[in-house]
């Protein structure tokens, strides 16, 4: 059998002693899956996502990404993983306010060492794919929330990652716009076989996924196909 893209075992996270935010979390995610994570506010979903995205480290347990123990990697190797393997989509968009839309999308390619021409070309291509081709020269604050989130998706996709981590990507959007964003994710998953892990509070958003993990007080309560 092929090794899983993500393999988590016995994962715990403590910010304070005796107050675990994640407790003994274990699961595997195969390449090409579309997973939704749900749970109450404060149950540890974002904490888990940050660890999966190599932005944060677990206190205990193991996290294997493509078979590699992330605890053994140094900060440059983790940066490389975030750059090439993972694309982030945040609830708050997290675009650079001073840079143009095209520059925002091309930024991961800058850290991948690509030339300016290459960055612009790829960024334009991604922008077109999220349907915002005409907005390339604007600043983020000149776009609506839904448009900004599509830009964020374009940025996440620009390095052709295998894994998209989206923490409440529709949390700041209305139902209609949220649905549009979800369609983009669904297409990426179905047509490009990109693995998607998505945190949401809304059941109809989670319904787009093929697997649902419920977190309660830092533990995995249920893990089943949806």
């Amino acid at each position: 059998m092929e090794r899983p893209l993500i393999s988590v075992s016995g994962l715990s996270k403590y910010y304070l002693e005796n107050m675990p935010v994640l407790k003994d979390v274990s699961f595997n995610i195969e390449s090409g899956e579309f997973v939704a994570i749900m749970g109450h506010s404060g149950s540890g979903k974002s904490t888990l996502m940050n660890i999966l995205g190599c932005l944060d480290t677990a206190t205990d347990g193991h996290y294997y990404l493509e078979g590699r123990d992330t605890a053994a990697l140094n900060s440059d190797e983790l940066a490389l993983l975030r750059n090439r393997l993972i694309g982030f989509v945040f609830q708050g968009f997290n675009l650079l306010p001073r840079s143009s839309i095209l520059d925002n999308i091309g930024l991961p390619l800058l850290y991948a060492g690509k030339s300016k021409a290459e960055r612009r070309e790829k960024a334009s291509m991604m922008l077109e794919r999220v349907g915002l081709a005409q907005f390339g020269d604007r600043r983020p604050n000149q776009l609506s929330g839904g448009q900004q989130q599509r830009v964020a998706i374009a940025r996440a996709l620009v390095t052709d990652p295998k894994l998209i981590l989206a923490d409440e990507p529709t949390g700041n959007l209305d139902t209609q716009t949220g649905g549009d964003i979800m369609k983009i994710f669904q297409t990426l998953n179905e047509e490009q076989n990109i693995t998607i892990i998505l945190v949401t509070h809304e059941a109809d958003i989670a319904a787009h996924a093929k697997r649902l993990i419920r977190v309660v007080d830092g533990r995995i309560a249920t893990d089943q196909p949806s």
């Binding site: 932005l55 900060s75 440059d76 940066a79 490389l80 750059n83 982030f88 930024l107 991948a112």
Partner: peptide, 16 residues
């Protein structure tokens, strides 16, 4: 700081 965080999230290394 936040900008730095965003840059790190999308792959900036320490030396970048």
């Amino acid at each position: 700081t936040r900008e730095i965080g965003i840059r790190m999230a999308i792959g900036a290394r320490r030396r970048d």
